[in-house]
Design a protein around this nucleic acid. Structure first.
Lengths: 335, 335
DNA sequence: ACAGTGAGTTGAAGCGCTTCGATCCGGCGA
DNA sequence: TCGCCGGATCGAAGCGCTTCAACTCACTGT
């Protein structure tokens, strides 16, 4: 292994000088810098991460905790993860991947052993068991999603309340008077996942405010469940013309079920999805949707964490405004 | 931070003794062990990962390289990843997540800086640019998938050749004489992804061997593409009754398109999917399928890597046998 | 009785890096 | 002319751990 001493010898300087060239923490003459950089390149020097972490008390690694719970939307989670990795690399950090297998203990472990400088948690529940652990740890963290009590935490997410309201607004503007939200599987609500609840709240509140007829259902991701949910819904509310779907996994099944039930989109019923763009676009007809900006959320999470790491003041809560993409699945209701 | 010296002091032993208790590399009396373990617990000691890596030349971290290329099946990739993380944790290792952003350079970086002890690469192409880098590195690695030239590498994957053949066999046994494979998007074939090509080869060879009428198509994941592909296929081969789908993203679209075309499954056409169980089960009708055992592949990859890490002899290539799950989407052809 | 054995334990030497004084030196103001 | 300043560089300490050689001590076999 090539060490900093080898580089120093090769460049005819002290090891500390090499270190300062690398970190830029002291001024070094241009000529020395050039010489050192040359030596680094010709010798193929890479600083030993462990040694660096030991000496500097910084590992340049952040943890990313992905619970991968049932009912979570896998492609979206993956987009988050990819975006976090990319953004972290831009700030010279690597990403350690944690799952929920060990529960909060894994956070404790990687933090206490100084493997990571900070952590990003996804899929946060209202009463997330990881939150108390988080508060106890010395490393900073950023949550993607909001727990019930977010005091002292840094959280970022799409503003799902407004997303729910935005869907209603779009449908109302088109003239719909009876709308329903089809949400995540029951399990997601039972564990009180914040984003699901907030969408529902935003949706319902806005619909009530506009004196619309409003209801909601959870739905599993299967053909049978989709068919059943829709049948029930239309039986209960014959006048239902506006559907908001916040459940990407069930999306195709629901659309197919609508066809089975001979409801044409958007002639008979309008559909708004809350999902990433790529997914909404792919359906037939392409779906009007409120975008889940996974990339942006991931990037924000990393930026917030980096701010905390270098001690900059950091907003406690960041809510990204929802954006509506109007495509071909929404139209005025039949009369 | 609690250090090994604190523990040693608290337990009344030398730091080295604590280290040996932790590593088990020397025999320590039961009483001392108990005392040390006690102190560790009461002080809440966690060894400093960096210090450990520096002194022992082992980081207990493995890299997982997920290219996240277009057309790759996201849920499957996620399953792999989850399984890798879980298996690695069982062997006391953590997982560093790499994407393709930096190309082979990221492998080089994490290896040269001793951040990781070894690496697992997913989504390997026939002529993968990472392979030359891999050969150059001193750390061992395991590939999920096979490049064209696998000499000197350790690879593991589902035996896609046999998987393709198995689908044909199943359809042939039911009496089908004309079959088609619907595979991944064009892009996947163009970059010569091994598994896609091998499935096609296994499928075609077996069908030819059985003197069946055989063809294949690639297909994008969209409603339009699915409809188009099927229309073309049925126009070209009116007698076509057996469909093998190796493209989970397009699966729902294809089934829906079949309904549009008034082909009932399995009455008019039998469908075999190559996909994870959960996905095949969810469709209507539940699909007969060849299972992609993502968990098992991930676990094997980790085990192989661990073997290489402790110098055990390791098979160069591990092909997991495919398993057919017969559900309701296959039946004898109409006559 | 005594060397030999081996289990149990220790002290100290690093591992490769960062960082904190300390040092050197050329130029500046007084 | 002298002292001083500050840019550039160096040397050494130390981060927390593992590991090796060495030591102790109770036993064993002869």
């Amino acid at each position: 292994m090539v060490t900093i001493a080898d580089v120093a010898r090769h460049a005819g300087v002290a090891p500390s000088t090499v270190s300062y060239v690398l970190s830029g923490k002291r001024s070094i003459s241009a000529s020395t810098q050039a010489r050192v950089q040359d030596s680094i390149r010709t010798l193929g020097y890479h600083p030993h991460a462990g040694a660096r972490a030991l000496a500097s008390n910084r590992s340049n690694v952040v943890a990313l905790a992905l619970p991968l719970r049932t009912g979570m939307n896998v492609p979206v989670v993956m987009q988050f993860a990819a975006s976090v990795v990319t953004s972290a690399r831009e700030q010279d950090h690597d990403v350690l991947l944690l799952t929920a297998d060990e529960g909060p203990a894994s956070l404790e472990r990687v933090a206490a052993s100084a493997m990571v400088d900070g952590m990003i948690l996804m899929d946060v529940e209202m009463h997330d068991p990881r939150v108390p652990t988080l508060r106890r740890l010395s490393q900073p963290s950023v949550l993607i999603g909001f727990p019930a009590d977010a005091t002292g935490l840094t959280c970022v997410d799409l503003d799902f309340t407004r997303a729910g309201a935005l869907c209603v607004e779009h449908l109302a503007t088109l003239g719909h008077r009876s709308v329903a939200l089809i949400g995540a599987p029951q399990a997601v609500y039972e564990r009180e996942t914040g984003f699901a609840q907030r969408t529902l709240a935003g949706f319902t509140t806005e619909a009530v405010r506009r004196r619309m007829d409003v209801t909601s259902r959870s739905c599993e991701a299967s053909h049978t469940a989709a068919l059943h949910t829709l049948t029930e819904l239309f039986t209960e509310r014959p006048a239902l013309t506006g559907l908001v779907v916040h459940n990407e996994a069930a999306l195709s099944y629901l659309l197919e079920a609508l066809r089975r039930l001979d409801r044409q989109v958007p002639r008979d019923v309008s559909v708004v999805a809350i999902s990433p763009d790529e997914i909404a676009e792919r359906h037939d007809p392409p779906l009007s949707s409120v975008v889940i900006p996974a990339d942006e959320v991931g990037r924000q999470a990393v930026h917030l964490l980096m701010s905390k790491l270098d001690g900059s003041p950091t907003p406690a809560s960041t809510l990204l405004p929802p954006r509506l993409a109007v495509r071909s699945s929404t139209a005025p209701p039949p009369h």
